[in-house]
Simulated scan of single mutants.
Amino acid sequence: MKKIKTAIIGAAGYTGGELLRLLVHHPYCDLVYVHSNSQKGKKVIDVHPDLIGDTDLIFTDNVDTEGIDAVFLGLPHGETKGFLEKHHFSTDTVIIDLSTDFRDESNGFVYGLPEVNKPKIKTAKKIANPGCFATGIQLALAPAIAKGWVKDTVQISGITGSTGAGKKLAETSHFSYRTGNMSVYKLFTHQHLKEIKQTFGQLNPEFNQELLFVPYRGNFSRGIWITAYFSFDGELEEAKKVYKDFYHDAPFMHVSDLDIDMKQAVNTNKCILHIQKENGQLVIYSAIDNLLKGASGQAVQNLNLAFGLEETTGLNLKSIAF
C-alpha cells in the first residue's frame, strides 16, 4: 500500500520521542516532518540520541498541513484546541491527539481505546488518545462494568513511573526526590477519572458507582501498575472466562492465570491482567507501559486501525526482560 505521510507536532518530549522511535520503523509510515518550537533547527538525534542511525530529520517550527495523511499531536494539555483553530488540516487527514483536550469526544473526536471503541476508531478521522492511568484502569475494569458486576464503590490504587510526569523538570520528578521514594498525589481527584467514568457509562448506562483512586509516584522510570477491587458474589473461574471472552479479539490484551509483574508489560504495547478473588472481593491487577500502551504505542495502534492495517503493525516490541 501507499505510505502514510505522517507528521508529529510536539516531538521533543517523552511521548513525542516514543512516537519517533515507533514511526521511523513503521513499515507503512513516511515520517515527513517533526515539529517542536523549543528544539527547532536541531537534529532529532541531538534531542533523542538513541535514534542515531535511524533518522536524519531536523526539528521544525513550521506546520505544513498539505498532503499529510496522519498527524499526531503531542502538545501540552490545553493547547491542542488552539492549535487546530490556527492550523487547518484536510478533512481526510487522520488527527490523533495525545492531550486531554478532546477525550470528552467533543468536536467530532472518537475516544481511542481500541479494546472498547474499535469499530468507531476504524472510521474516525479524529481520535483522542486515552490517558495512561485511564488506560490501565479502564482495561482492568471494563468487562466487569459491562457485566453489571460493580454494585458498590470501586477501590483503585495505581503507581506510575517518573516519565508519566513528562520531560519538563519539576520538584517531584527530580532523581533526588524520586529515587528510594513514593508519594501520593491528586487523591480521589485525578483528571483521568473523567474519561474513565465516560467510558464506563457507555459500557453500562446504569453505572454510577464511586471510583476511589489513589495515584502514587513510583521510584522507577516507566510502567504503570493498577490494583482494583470490588465486592463480587460470583466465582473466580466465571470472572476469568468473562474477561478472556471480552478481550478475545484484542491482540495486546493478556489475561494471565499466573501472577504477573510490571516488567512483563514494560517496553511493550501490552496490557497484562491477573484476577483473584479474596474475602468476597474480585481483585484485578493491570500492568502497562505508560509511554507505550499508555500513550504513543496506543496512538500508533489507533493509526493502524484508522488506516485498515493489522492492529499490531510496528508494535511487536520487546527487547529486554531485566
Rank of each mutant, 00 (worst) to 15 (best):
90 S>A: 09
221 S>N: 15
216 Y>T: 14
274 H>V: 11
77 H>C: 13
263 K>L: 10
26 H>L: 04
270 K>I: 07
51 L>R: 03
245 D>M: 10
53 G>Q: 03
73 L>Y: 00
12 A>I: 01
84 L>F: 05
301 Q>C: 13
34 V>W: 03
255 V>C: 02
48 H>F: 05
22 L>Q: 15
44 V>L: 13
143 P>M: 15
122 K>H: 14
172 T>P: 05
217 R>K: 13
236 L>Q: 10
90 S>V: 08
317 L>T: 12
45 I>R: 15
223 G>D: 03
303 L>M: 07
109 F>G: 00
146 A>L: 08
257 D>I: 06
317 L>F: 05
244 K>S: 11
99 S>Q: 06
19 L>C: 00
75 L>Q: 03
23 L>H: 04
301 Q>R: 14
263 K>E: 15
264 Q>P: 01
95 I>L: 15
217 R>T: 13
123 T>S: 07
44 V>K: 00
275 I>N: 03
156 I>H: 02
270 K>C: 14
109 F>D: 01
209 Q>I: 02
268 T>C: 10
207 F>I: 08
207 F>M: 04
95 I>N: 02
191 Q>Y: 11
276 Q>W: 15
48 H>P: 10
300 V>F: 04
2 K>Y: 11
21 R>G: 05
278 E>V: 06
21 R>K: 08
257 D>R: 04
302 N>G: 04
311 E>G: 08
25 H>W: 12
258 L>S: 09
276 Q>Y: 10
104 D>Q: 07
287 A>Q: 00
5 K>V: 11
261 D>P: 03
294 G>T: 12
85 E>H: 15
138 Q>A: 14
243 Y>I: 01
176 S>N: 08
231 S>Y: 06
189 T>P: 01
147 K>G: 02
73 L>I: 09
71 V>Q: 03
304 N>I: 02
190 H>R: 05
257 D>Y: 07
68 I>N: 09
234 G>V: 10
91 T>V: 12
